[in-house]
Design a protein around this nucleic acid. Structure first.
Length: 271
DNA sequence: CTTTGCACCTGTTGGC
DNA sequence: TGCCAACAGGTGCAAA
């Protein structure tokens, strides 16, 4: 479900209510997520102050002085603030209770998400250490994408979805970015010219920023820290629009499959 | 090293 | 209406 804008929306929603709070309890109802939730979450976290809520790629980081809780929402996860009166529903796997009143509740039907504990430098954690640059920060520009993509035969769409190239570009925003930059998703990454790499980077940044402003994209079930959906789906140009007219030229949007993921593009606007 | 395909899991949808 | 296959926003890993 969540790509970078949805994770960032979640982070912004919960941070003001969580930062500075003390974890007074942790409730594990179901430990079998993508990785088993470590027992250290129960033993090490209670009593600690959450100093900051940060994000690296699609990983949310609850930072305490002694370490970090790493949270990934997978495909279907969400994290929201509730209280004791909120009934526990199916797939509400974990509660992190803050100051005995607020509850940070992790909900994830498919359980592709993860909650991990990392003592020490979280950026050196195996899952984070080899990630590519943040798309909205320095280090991600046209020259970087151009250099990295040389000699790569993989399609440009799959290339920009590789978190070791750049983090945060998932299946929706990959299609949208390629539409905005006028590039065919099937093009070999190594054949995209330098100017087009620059356009693509600009498009990725524009799409992600716009989506964050709209509170993310809700196709079926994404909700932010307060339980609200995102509104960016209203501005999608190609994703999920197979057969519908292109907003720019009216040509029917096409769908194809790349690496068992659906890709959408306009055969006229993207070459 | 690059690339591909699979696995993980549940819920929803669309076709017959 | 019911059943079943296909598909869904991610990503680490084995294998080629």
């Amino acid at each position: 479900m969540p790509e970078l804008p949805e994770v960032e929306t979640t982070r912004r929603g919960i941070a003001p209510h969580v930062e500075g709070g003390v974890v007074t309890d942790v409730v594990l109802r179901r430990r079998a997520l993508r990785y088993p939730i470590p027992p250290s979450l129960l033993t090490d976290l209670p009593g600690k102050v959450i100093e900051r809520v940060e994000r690296r790629g699609k990983y949310l980081l609850l930072c305490v002085a002694e370490g970090t809780v790493i949270i990934h929402l997978g495909m279907s996860g969400n994290l929201r603030l509730v209280d004791h009166a909120t009934p526990v529903e199916k797939h509400d796997h974990v509660d992190i209770v803050i100051d005995s009143k607020r509850i940070l509740r992790f909900h994830d039907p498919r359980r592709f998400g993860a909650i991990l504990w990392c003592g020490g430098n979280v950026l050196e954690h195996a899952l984070l250490a080899t990630l590519g640059p943040e798309p909205l920060e320095e280090g991600f520009d046209g020259d970087y994408l151009y250099e990295r993509s040389r000699k790569r035969k993989q399609s440009i769409k799959q290339f920009i979805m590789d978190s070791h190239v750049v983090v945060g570009v998932g299946n929706i925003y990959a299609s949208e970015s390629l539409f905005l930059s006028g590039i065919r998703p099937q093009t070999a990454a190594g054949k995209v010219t330098r100017p087009r790499c620059q356009q693509l980077v600009a498009a990725i940044q524009q799409v992600l920023q716009a989506a964050i402003k709209q509170g993310g994209t809700t196709l079926r079930d994404f909700v932010d820290g307060e339980g609200r959906p995102g509104y960016f789906q209203q501005q999608l140009n190609v994703y999920g629009r197979e057969g519908e007219p292109c907003h720019q030229c009216g040509t029917a949007i096409k769908q194809l499959r790349q690496g068992q993921r659906a890709t959408y593009y306009c055969p006229h606007c993207q070459r």
